[in-house]
Computed example of a mutant assay.
Amino acid sequence: MFSNTTSIKKAVGFINELDSKLFMPLLSRILQKIHLKDERSFTEEEEEKLQSTFNLPANDLELLLETLEFFLQQAAYHLAKPAVLTQQLLSLDINEDKVNIIVEAWTTHAKNVLQKLGQRTLAPNQLSDINWRLNLEMANMGRSKMKLPNAMFELKVTQEDMQQKEKIHLEFSHDELYAFYNQLETIQRQIDNLD
Results as ranks from 00 to 15, higher is better:
91 S>T: 11
138 M>I: 14
137 E>A: 15
122 L>M: 14
30 I>E: 07
9 K>N: 14
68 L>R: 04
25 P>Q: 08
153 F>Q: 03
125 N>F: 01
20 S>W: 00
153 F>D: 06
11 A>R: 02
21 K>Y: 05
195 D>I: 07
22 L>M: 08
173 S>E: 12
47 E>G: 01
20 S>M: 03
7 S>T: 14
100 N>M: 01
115 Q>F: 01
9 K>R: 15
107 T>F: 00
159 Q>V: 10
33 K>G: 06
39 E>R: 08
84 V>G: 02
120 R>F: 03
92 L>H: 08
47 E>I: 01
124 P>T: 13
12 V>F: 01
10 K>V: 09
43 T>S: 15
109 H>M: 08
119 Q>W: 05
174 H>P: 05
48 E>I: 06
131 N>V: 07
182 N>V: 04
163 Q>M: 00
22 L>D: 12
3 S>N: 13
148 L>K: 05
108 T>E: 15
17 E>I: 02
127 L>N: 04
25 P>R: 03
149 P>G: 09
167 K>I: 13
116 K>I: 02
18 L>A: 05
10 K>C: 09
147 K>V: 11
9 K>H: 08
164 Q>W: 00
129 D>G: 09
37 K>D: 12
177 L>G: 03
110 A>Y: 03
161 D>W: 00
144 S>A: 10
163 Q>G: 02
183 Q>S: 12
101 I>S: 11
127 L>S: 04
42 F>P: 05
78 H>A: 12
20 S>H: 02
148 L>S: 03
18 L>R: 03
122 L>K: 14
8 I>W: 00
160 E>Q: 04
176 E>Y: 02
34 I>G: 02
23 F>H: 06
76 A>G: 10
135 N>M: 10
101 I>R: 08
80 A>W: 02
104 E>M: 12
185 E>T: 07
19 D>F: 00
66 E>W: 02
77 Y>T: 14
18 L>I: 04
79 L>N: 15
36 L>Q: 09
170 L>W: 04
33 K>R: 10
2 F>P: 11
71 F>I: 15
25 P>V: 07
5 T>G: 00
140 N>S: 13
34 I>N: 08
20 S>F: 00
85 L>K: 09
29 R>Y: 02
155 L>H: 04
155 L>N: 06
91 S>P: 10
178 Y>W: 01
55 N>D: 15
157 V>W: 07
157 V>H: 04
174 H>T: 14
110 A>E: 15
104 E>H: 14
182 N>Q: 13
90 L>V: 10
3 S>T: 13
83 A>Q: 14
100 N>Q: 11
67 T>L: 03
132 W>R: 05
191 I>V: 12
164 Q>C: 03
74 Q>A: 10
80 A>P: 09
106 W>R: 08
187 I>P: 00
184 L>Q: 11
124 P>H: 07
42 F>Q: 11
61 L>M: 11
63 L>S: 01
57 P>G: 04
129 D>L: 05
91 S>E: 14
64 L>G: 09
190 Q>K: 14
144 S>N: 13
117 L>E: 12
40 R>K: 12
180 F>V: 10
48 E>S: 11
173 S>I: 05
135 N>K: 06
132 W>L: 07
112 N>E: 15
25 P>S: 10
158 T>R: 02
25 P>T: 09
77 Y>F: 13
57 P>Q: 08
154 E>L: 03
112 N>R: 12
44 E>W: 00
41 S>K: 02
27 L>T: 06
174 H>R: 11
167 K>T: 14
139 A>S: 15
